[in-house]
Every structure is written in structure tokens, then in C-alpha cells.
């Protein structure tokens, strides 16, 4: 771009754009924290807020916006990268975590919705967990991207159905997808846990 052409009044287009941009930014900053006092009582959360999340038995202080999903907090603020961002609508099960012991998709859960609830990720299960061990024995992974979601889903499924048959395991895990196609070994791993009787 050539030098800005100065007009008579020492006014340039570039300077003007810079100036108006700054003005707009200033308006946005002033606009954000404006809270009508009447609405304060209803507990509306507008911008970033510091909250405590209970993840894997530990309390974590995090600063989140209302739109932040649980998956984003886990991965990008707490460094728990087990749960994977695969599908926006959670249809693949890659972001499965346990919320109060129930398997949910972290990709479709707002982080603010989890305040005060116990969150368990695959990291929280630990390497000695019987489901994790069964996955190792049965070599139930290829690229491994879907594995954390599968491990959490198997854990939750077997807790509810400790004596599941192969057919039930296949149907119960239909919310987790694997592009490599390791389903055979995942089912074997789940059945190993059933046979070992150590689940629950």
C-alpha cells in the first residue's frame, strides 16, 4: 500500500480507520460490564467468570465464558487432553467424560452447567483401572484417538450392566465411533472385564 495521502486538514484514511477501530473497541469494553441492577438478582452471567470445577477429585479454579464447553476447559485450560474434539454434536463419543458418574459428551455440555458436579475424565481412571488394563491386554486400539472415549464409555456401561453379553456390549457402545475399526478388540476388552468380574 502506498503512503497515505494527507488531506489538507492532516487527516488520512488510515488514521481515520485506526481511530474508529479503537473507538469501537472502547465501546465494546464499556458495553460489556454494564449490568442493569434489576437483573443482577437473577444470577445472570454475562462475560468471563471465575468458577470452581471438580475434576478427577480435585478442585480447579478456571475462568470461563458462558459459551465455553466442558471439553474446551478440560483440554485447553486444565491440560486434560484425553477427551477429544471430534464431532461438534457429540455423535462420535470421542469426548465422553463422566459427570456425576454418568457418561456424557463434553463437547455438547456447557462448562458452567458442570459447576458443583463431579467430573471424571479418562485421566481420572488411572493406568491401573481394570477397563484400561483390559484395553491394553486386548490391544483395543490402533491410532488411539477414539480410545479415551471408548474407555470411559465402557467403564460407565459396565457399571450399569456388569454381566453384559457381547450383543449388549455392542449395542451399549453404539455411541462411540472408531475410524480404524478396532471394534472387535474393544468388545473383547469389555468382555474381559465382565469375565474378570472386577468391574463396578
Amino acid at each position: 500500500m502506498s503512503e497515505p495521502v494527507r488531506s489538507r486538514g492532516g487527516f488520512s484514511r488510515r488514521e481515520f480507520l485506526k481511530g474508529s477501530g479503537a473507538a469501537a473497541a472502547a465501546t465494546a469494553v464499556v458495553g460489556a460490564p454494564l449490568v442493569a441492577p434489576a437483573e443482577e438478582a437473577t444470577g445472570l452471567i454475562r462475560g468471563a467468570e471465575e468458577v470452581t470445577l471438580q475434576v478427577n477429585g480435585k478442585a480447579h479454579r478456571v475462568r470461563i465464558e458462558p459459551r465455553t464447553t466442558l471439553l474446551e476447559v478440560l483440554r485447553y485450560q486444565l491440560g486434560l487432553t484425553g477427551a477429544k474434539p471430534v464431532s461438534a454434536d457429540g455423535c462420535c463419543g470421542g469426548s465422553t467424560v463422566l459427570l456425576e458418574g454418568k457418561p456424557i459428551s463434553a463437547a455438547t455440555t456447557l462448562a458452567l452447567d458442570c459447576v458443583g458436579k463431579q467430573i471424571t475424565t479418562v485421566e481420572g481412571l488411572g493406568a491401573q483401572d481394570n477397563v484400561v488394563q483390559a484395553f491394553v491386554h486386548q490391544d483395543a486400539m490402533q491410532c488411539g484417538f477414539c480410545t479415551p472415549g471408548f474407555v470411559v464409555a465402557v467403564k460407565a456401561f459396565l457399571k450399569k450392566h456388569p454381566y453384559a453379553t457381547e450383543e449388549e456390549v455392542r449395542e451399549g457402545l453404539n455411541g462411540n465411533l472408531c475410524r480404524c475399526g478396532t471394534y472387535v478388540n474393544v468388545v473383547r476388552a469389555a468382555l474381559e472385564v465382565v469375565k474378570g468380574g472386577r468391574n463396578g
Binding site: I104, S105, A153, A156, L173, N174, G175, N176
Partner: peptide, 9 residues
């Protein structure tokens, strides 16, 4: 209806 995750959510 849906997967285990969907049913719980």
C-alpha cells in the same frame, strides 16, 4: 434412542 451418552444427557 441414541447412545448411552445421549440417553444420560
Amino acid at each position: 434412542l441414541g447412545s448411552l451418552q445421549l440417553q444420560c444427557q
